[in-house]
Nucleic acid binder design. Structure first.
Ligand SMILES: [Mn+2]
Ligand SMILES: [Mn+2]
Ligand SMILES: [Mn+2]
Ligand SMILES: [Mn+2]
Lengths: 234, 234
DNA sequence: TATCTATGTTTGACTACCCTAACAAATAAC
DNA sequence: GTTATTTGTTAGGGTAGTCAAACATAGATA
């Protein structure tokens, strides 16, 4: 049983690797993610190395061990199941769930989380479209690309968000967007890389930054299967 | 926002007062309840006094202030709501819920607990028959007495347990007993103060200790109202 | 009243987590 | 290949929560 804090370090390492697509993480990057100073992160890394949850050499990059990754995935499973519970059963909005799930993810009870999973009918994705690892830590991978990749004239289906910040999530919802929304790309502006979209009959323009944080599949694709033409651009 | 530990001290103080029917608690008693040493409890009491959650003089007895009692009741509300959730929605047995609720009761989110309350349809009692304080901290008081007070020949309805230990709860369930069970007192033995009872057609003998931990109302009483004859002994 | 015992308090020490400031290594720039 | 910058580590210190051991007080006993 790791402490609340130790668990957060493992989760942060996993999240950084995943979000940044890198295997190796630096002390400063980790410290920034956890909002602590590098010295603090360094202390904790020593302890986690001692316990065989991370591997690294002095002045070298950090990696989760298999045990560490497994532990991290278990926490992420809990986090996403709780988010799903809050959203589906307790009427929380998708920008409110994360904050509370940050606390709930540390509750220690195998039985609790497996019963919760059952109660929710074994959901595969959380309210942000992120996959929920199953009891064994397996994740349902699905093909997705960003709104940036969709060509003008084409339609697509929103399946997830990359940015989970409250500000972004509220912005998205205010635009009438949400998971499974059908988005038509009306035009793309070369000048500022903005995208003109149409959602439920209403048109808006979104920035490049915005579009890069919306995950979609093309309208004709099946969820979870790669696009027929390999890239989702029709 | 108090820490996890501070919250446990307030809750323990409240529970001791309630269970023991006393207003003033001693350092040793508190320490024992929290499974820490008196020195530790003493340190924490200083801090809680500083924060105005408890009141006492050096070498004197301890009491919760109004603020302290209010905080304690809020934690107890959370504890009992979570127990109810685990029992009613997640198929936990009544001897399993307490342990997990001990963790869940510290989650900080007003909204979470009020939504949970609504989700459960505002339950008045937890799986052990203990009253659940409402949003304002108000408790539904109800008349109850113990199985010891029921005269031979009389029947009664079980409404709560006093002892919440796993061992006792499992024992009770194994006897076919549970909330709302109808218990007929067949006979009382003067020799060892044991009670012969009949539940669902089956007879058993239970010890004085056992009977003193079963709360009942008489069979003809209405739940929540005092017994016509003032004492529940018909 | 004098003494004994139970109860409560203080002191000093330990671990976990965090910080600042100084330092060392690795990497980038020139 | 030397210097400058970024990155990571160490040393020393702070707070929260815990304990053992010594001490003080209050209450009970004689
Ligand atoms: Mn989240
Ligand atoms: Mn999420
Ligand atoms: Mn309980
Ligand atoms: Mn209970």
């Amino acid at each position: 049983m790791l402490s609340f804090t130790e668990e957060n370090y493992l989760k942060a390492l996993h999240n950084i690797s995943e979000a940044e697509g890198v295997d190796l993480v630096g002390t400063n990057r980790l410290a920034a993610a956890l909002q602590v100073k590098p010295a603090t992160a360094n202390d904790m890394l020593k302890k986690l190395k001692e316990k065989s949850y991370v591997a690294y050499e002095k002045y070298g990059k950090i990696k989760l061990t298999d045990a560490g990754a497994q532990y991290a995935v278990a926490i992420i499973r809990k986090h996403r199941l709780w988010e799903t519970f809050l959203y589906q059963k307790l009427e929380f909005s998708w920008d409110e769930v994360h904050e509370v799930a940050e606390q709930l993810e540390h509750i220690q009870s195998e039985k609790l989380i497996d019963k919760l999973d059952k109660f929710l009918a074994y959901p595969a994705f959380d309210p942000h479209g992120d996959p929920i690892p199953n009891q064994k830590g397996a994740i349902k991978v699905r093909f997705k690309t960003t709104l940036l990749d969709v060509a003008a004239g084409a339609s697509c289906r929103m399946v997830a968000v990359k940015d989970n910040s409250k500000l972004f999530l509220q912005y998205v919802a205010n635009l009438g967007l949400g998971l499974n929304a059908i988005i038509k790309v009306v035009a793309k502006q070369d000048y500022d890389a903005s995208t003109q979209i149409e959602v439920a009959g209403k048109q808006t323009s979104v920035s490049e930054k915005f579009a890069s944080n919306i995950f979609v599949i093309c309208n004709t694709c099946k969820v979870g299967q790669p696009c027929p033409g390999l890239r989702c651009q029709v």
